[in-house]
Design a binder for these strands. Structure first.
Lengths: 177, 177
DNA sequence: CCGAACATGTAACCTGTTACATGATTAC
DNA sequence: GTAATCATGTAACAGGTTACATGTTCGG
């Protein structure tokens, strides 16, 4: 049971930011925020969120206080050390600028290797999936707060870049007919 | 020990593509390709690569044959089922167009919440890190084959988008002097 | 011959996943 | 009262990580 005193995982940083900047005070609400977010990458599974909060509390980055009024539960807030850790996580330039895991980039060099007809069909499907995702993101925009909106706008820009990239691809390789 | 008959992990798909499209025939070479790639997201740890290849071989997607000439080792190649599985993985539109894990996007809504002076310094550092990464990627371009070049060009476009985004950010929030 | 690179693996660990379990509170 | 939602967790599992262990082959 290691405590994240040195560096936070991406999920732990996201949990801290949800509590501090987006005002989710119970673990359940943090979890649901992940489940319903149009731009955050985790499923919000209980088996990830509750242990993460436990670790952050053990490291004294999160303070817990039982809720007395209304529904019972545990109200979460950041300790001064928690705020400092969150800020360090937000600003870490190495972490923030690393490439991340991008399934599109990973495949981008491989579509060109496909048989022309297979390739044309694949690109068509990809274009369709990107367009659908774009529409989903755009319609979700007005329900979001500042933080989620910025993330979602970034996702939109990414999908637009993918869409442009797909359209720039030649419909088939040189060797046909 | 589940065999990946239904769907491949991103690492498994990348392993198949390294063997099939980039011509790495031993596990060691696949591993080193991950370690030295400027655009692939894994560390190429032995504890990930060797078990993945084992799973793919167990699922009959990879054929193994001992090398007789020169250094000894095991030559890997894709079975017909392996080629089909790879193609399905490459073309899967849901997987290929999912947002992925992007540390920059995750933080993009949070920099605006920082204290103006902290924020200005953070953005400066981020810009610097992006520029350095851009240069590193660009200089690596001429040593790469087609597949890796496409991936790296995508990474370059991504970092350029980040750079533009950072420059568009106002130096501080409205409430100062 | 000796160090570097080739080649293959295992063990302990970490952190995410799904699926299950339990109970309190609110809305109808 | 009962169904949905709020709220918190655990267990089994999956698939990565680092670190360690072992032996081979090539270059100088």
């Amino acid at each position: 049971m290691k405590t994240p005193s040195s560096s936070l995982t991406e999920l732990e940083g996201a949990v801290l930011s949800e509590i501090h900047h987006r005002g989710h005070d119970t673990a359940f609400q943090v979890r649901r925020a992940f489940q319903t977010s149009p731009s955050v990458e985790w499923s919000g599974s209980a088996g990830a969120v509750y242990p993460a909060i436990r670790r952050l509390a053990d490291a004294a980055l999160i303070e817990t206080k039982p809720i007395t009024t209304g529904r019972k539960g545990t109200r979460l807030s950041l300790s001064p050390q928690g705020i400092a850790a969150l800020e360090a996580w937000i600003c870490d330039p190495v972490r923030a600028t690393s490439v991340g895991v991008d399934p599109f980039r990973l495949r981008s060099g491989l579509w060109a290797t496909l048989d022309p007809t297979v390739r044309a069909e694949a690109l068509r499907r990809l274009q369709h999936a990107v367009d659908e995702e774009l529409e989903r993101l755009i319609t979700s925009l007005d329900t979001l707060d500042e933080v989620e909106r910025a993330r979602t706008e970034w996702s939109i820009d990414l999908q637009k870049m993918r869409s442009r990239w797909l359209m720039q691809q030649p419909p088939h390789r040189l060797s046909q007919t």
